[in-house]
């Protein structure tokens, strides 16, 4: 049986019909054409599908679309909406934290969820926040560096 759900993705309201078994990841990608969350495993292991749902980083492959009724969802597309790069995006570029880029949208979402609640994370806290985001290219170090420097920039901008 189809359900009609209304959800807020990246500041826009969408109303879509979904089957109960449809995953949030598939609905975002196939029905809303928001393709930054990637499909890497569909079982919660790789983190490529990470989005922020109601303030928390989640694997959108493990979330049923029907559950996102009234949810507020953020993907990396939202960060650049006003044409200005988010400090995390800029830091990822500057630190060499992007190679093939397939992990990048999910990685940035995990990082953003962290910085939104903990603006001055330790290196360990950063690692913990992205441990569920696999990257096969970068060796992670540039990513950790990028998040650290984004945090510093955001602190400065906020201050």
């Amino acid at each position: 049986m189809k359900h009609t759900i209304t959800l807020n993705v990246n500041g826009q309201k969408y109303t879509v019909d979904v089957e109960p078994q449809e995953k949030l990841l598939d609905v975002l990608r196939d029905k809303l054409d928001i393709t930054s969350p990637k499909k890497g495993c569909e079982m919660g292991e790789c983190g490529a599908c990470t989005v922020i749902m109601n303030g928390k980083a989640v694997n959108s492959c493990l979330v049923l679309a029907v559950e996102s009724q009234d949810a507020v969802i953020t993907t990396v597309e939202a960060l650049h909406a006003d044409g200005k790069l988010h400090p995390l995006q800029q830091a990822f570029i500057d630190a060499g934290a992007v190679q093939c880029g397939f992990c990048t949208p999910g990685m940035i979402m995990s990082a953003k969820a962290l910085l939104d609640t903990n603006p001055t994370p330790t290196e360990m806290e950063i690692k913990e926040a992205i441990a569920g985001n696999f990257c096969r290219c970068t060796g992670y170090k540039p990513i950790v560096d990028a998040i650290q420097s984004a945090a510093a920039v955001m602190k400065k901008e906020g201050a």
Partner: peptide, 9 residues
């Protein structure tokens, strides 16, 4: 338990 994403859910 798992990752931050898994612990969040």
């Amino acid at each position: 338990v798992g990752s931050q994403q898994i612990r969040n859910r």
